[in-house]
Nucleic acid binder design. Structure first.
Lengths: 190, 190
DNA sequence: TCCTCCATGTAAAAGGTTACATGATTTG
DNA sequence: CAAATCATGTAACCTTTTACATGGAGGA
């Protein structure tokens, strides 16, 4: 059983940057490149409550303090921030290995993990991520290539073969990116 | 409300190629490049029943005929095939326009649609797909590029910027692929 | 005989989508 | 003042995931 859904990790990553309300988070999902996550209240508010129940985030009053005795009027901006356990969960996620499954069917989520590394894990971890990412992508592409060649021999320009090719080229582009990104990160004066 | 889930369309596409059992379909999902779809019985058998309830597929006896009066022993290979309504639904899906959402958050599913076109829609439809695919990708990338430039100016080699770049480069690779694929399909002696 | 694979299913739980509901505040 | 936006939530529904269950067939 999974530790948390992709959405929950995305919320942890955003809340690590700064305490925010559910509404702020929804706006981020709706207006930025994180469109992959729904900005519907029916997904975000329940996810926040799950994270709260797991002890990974906590509510802070609108004015920035979690003081007792100040039950601010409901329906006014309710901020959340990470707890220590939440930070630990985020770090564990950021530091986890890149698997074949990650590159084969969760590329966007895996990239989000990389995006959240800044300021949260040492640069060496980001470099290791890129190495693993390239290794898994490369291994996966090598399993696909012979399949593509067999298809291509039997019917070179049919849409099935072309679609297959598109997937392979997408991964090659990622491989290329990963190598350049690694070089940038490894630069002494990065 | 959607017409059918992505899994249901994938099943229609596979069953169009030839009548198959649930088990056959599971093997396809588990062993080929269609790994994006789960091969768990808990997803496929219910999906088949949903399609049957919608009148898009029907059962045929193990020996190939749907004759009445031959209640073959249960627990023996049960084949499904498309009905006329099922073919119509598949064709409608294959012929539908490529939207911004399709390229922004459902690339794999959109490619699958293209892959299933062979033998089911005229070549002109596949070419139109590629034109729309390129148009939407290109439009989407143009909205992302200024965001990337702003990020890049403030912190050129941090992981967030690099991850953003990876998404852009992935789409550029798809654009490139789409143009080459279109040229191949449009060739007189394709 | 035992184990693996074939083949089909069900049950429970989790998660996300869509739609609805409510009220405050800001903007025109 | 009206409308849009801020802000939080609930309810119903659908799909998927995970786990369990069953029994036949074929090979070691």
């Amino acid at each position: 059983m999974k530790d948390a859904s992709a959405l929950e990790f995305a919320l942890l990553g955003l809340l690590k940057q700064r305490p925010q309300s559910g509404y702020d988070l929804r706006k981020t999902f709706g207006t930025t490149a994180m469109r992959q996550y729904s900005d519907s209240p029916g997904s975000i508010y329940p996810a926040l409550r799950r994270l709260e129940a797991k002890g990974r985030i906590e509510r802070v009053g609108p004015d920035g303090e979690a003081g007792a005795g100040q039950e601010a009027d409901p329906r006014r901006k309710q901020l959340f921030r990470l707890t220590a356990a939440g930070e630990a969960a985020l770090l564990a996620w950021l530091s986890s290995q890149v698997t074949r499954e990650d590159v084969a069917l969760r590329l966007a989520e895996t990239m989000l993990r990389f995006a959240f590394m800044d300021g949260n894990v040492p640069r060496a971890t980001a470099i290791r991520f890129l190495d693993e990412y390239a290794r898994e992508l490369s291994g996966y592409v090598e399993t696909l290539r012979p399949q593509w060649e067999a298809m291509h021999r039997s019917s070179p320009i049919h849409t099935g073969v072309l679609a297959f090719r598109s997937g392979i080229e997408g991964m090659e582009a990622q491989l290329d990116w990963a190598r350049r990104a690694r070089a940038l990160l490894a630069e002494p004066r990065g």
